[in-house]
Computed example of a mutant assay.
Amino acid sequence: MHNVNMKAEQLHQLIWMSRPLMQAAEGCVENGLTGTNLTVRMRAVLEILHKYGEQTVPELAARLDIQRQYVQIMCNETLTSGFIEQRPNPRHKRSPILTLTNQGSALIEDILSKEMQIMQEMSEDLSTEDIATALKVILSVVDGLQKRTGERK
């Protein structure tokens, strides 16, 4: 690593810190779901439906960037909870439309509100510019890595 410059080393460290970041984020999300009967996977389904409205499983899979078969399992779990429901899809008989129930909508709004309060508290020690720069760097790194692996959409 003698010829690697400091910038490259810092970028490498940034990439490797993504795993502990995601593990800590998932742990925090899990803590926030205590008493809700939701799993992190179910919460993800609720959040996408809340943010984008009704979706099919393939649409959810695309938004979550996860294989459709895995998202189908996530949706099946969430359907049995009563937080989402399915309706026939006039455009595709084998791909029903999933939508939040009133209970699911109220629950995800409460969860997101609590999570945004945590983000508000954490952001107090950071400048708007620092957050914008970090986001710009992460988006650039993800794009660069996806281009190199052929995963770019």
Rank of each mutant, 00 (worst) to 15 (best):
G32R: 05
Q67L: 10
T39A: 06
P88K: 15
R94N: 07
N37C: 05
D110T: 15
E47Y: 15
K93W: 00
D65I: 15
P58I: 09
L38A: 02
A25F: 02
E115A: 12
Q23M: 07
K93M: 04
G32Q: 06
Q67S: 10
P20Q: 03
F83P: 03
I111N: 01
A62D: 14
D65H: 15
I66G: 06
I111D: 02
T101F: 08
L14Q: 02
M22P: 00
V71T: 06
L112F: 02
Q67E: 14
G35A: 01
E59G: 15
Q72N: 14
E59S: 15
G82N: 10
A44M: 12
I118Q: 10
E9Q: 08
W16I: 05
A44I: 02
K93E: 09
G27D: 04
A8H: 01
L107T: 09
R87D: 02
H12L: 14
L11G: 02
A61K: 05
A44C: 10
G32P: 03
E109M: 13
A24E: 07
A106N: 10
Q120F: 03
M119W: 07
Q69E: 13
K93V: 07
K51L: 13
L79M: 12
M119R: 08
E30Q: 11
P20I: 08
T36M: 07
T36S: 14
A44P: 01
R68M: 13
E9R: 12
P20W: 04
Q55P: 05
L107I: 03
R87N: 07
E30W: 00
I97E: 00
Y70K: 14
Q10A: 11
L21Q: 07
C75R: 12
Q23S: 02
H50C: 09
V57Q: 11
D110G: 11
L100S: 07
E26H: 00
H50F: 13
L64M: 15
T101E: 04
M74Y: 12
R94H: 05
A24M: 10
M42P: 00
E30F: 00
E115D: 10
L100A: 02
M119A: 12
P20K: 07
V45H: 01
C28R: 12
E47H: 12
L100F: 06
C75E: 11
H92C: 04
V71D: 04
E121W: 06
L33P: 03
W16Q: 10
M116I: 06
N102Y: 06
S113K: 14
D65R: 15
Y70R: 13
T56A: 08
L14N: 03
G32N: 06
D110E: 13
E115S: 13
I97H: 02
M17P: 00
R43P: 01
Y52I: 11
M6R: 13
N76Q: 15
I73G: 06
T99G: 03
C75F: 09
P90D: 11
T80F: 05
I66M: 15
E59F: 08
Q72D: 11
L14F: 11
I118Y: 08
Q13Y: 04
Q103R: 14
P96V: 10
V57N: 11
A62I: 10
D65T: 13
M6Q: 12
K7G: 01
R43M: 13
R91P: 00
E121K: 13
R94W: 00
R91C: 02
